[in-house]
Amino acid sequence: MDIRPAEITANRANSIVTIQWNDGHRSAYPFGLLRAACPCASCRGGHENMSAEPDAEVFSTVLPESPATRIRSVEAAGSYAIIIEWEDGHHYGIYNWHYLRALCPCEECRSRFGEAV
């Protein structure tokens, strides 16, 4: 099954992005997690560090509330990803569906993507 979001909601009142997936799963991402896991080459320390899944340490990274962790807009990138623009102007990260699913912080998804529990 091609797993993809059916609906994406960025709630700026509680700073949480919620994704309803087409397989029935539901993910909730704090804005800070999405920014810490920005998949752009600059944030990941160069193209050589880019991979299909987020680095494990992003889950334990806590970013303080700031323009860097406030979402200005979310736009679809074709039918495979979203681009998030942050209030500090950063908008280079392309979050594709696989990456976002791997970034889901719930226990089930963390187990699936290799994080020790």
Binding site: D2, R4, P5, A6, E7, I8, T9, A10, N11, R12, A13, N14, S15, I19, P64, E65, I71, S73, V74, E75, A76, G78, S79, Y80, I82
Partner: peptide, 20 residues
């Protein structure tokens, strides 16, 4: 065959940010 694009909602900026 065009793949479906998810519906994206971005709530308006709260008038009073929750804050620290």
């Amino acid at each position: 065959t065009p793949l479906p694009t998810p519906t994206i909602y971005v709530s308006p900026t709260p008038t009073q940010r929750p804050g620290l």
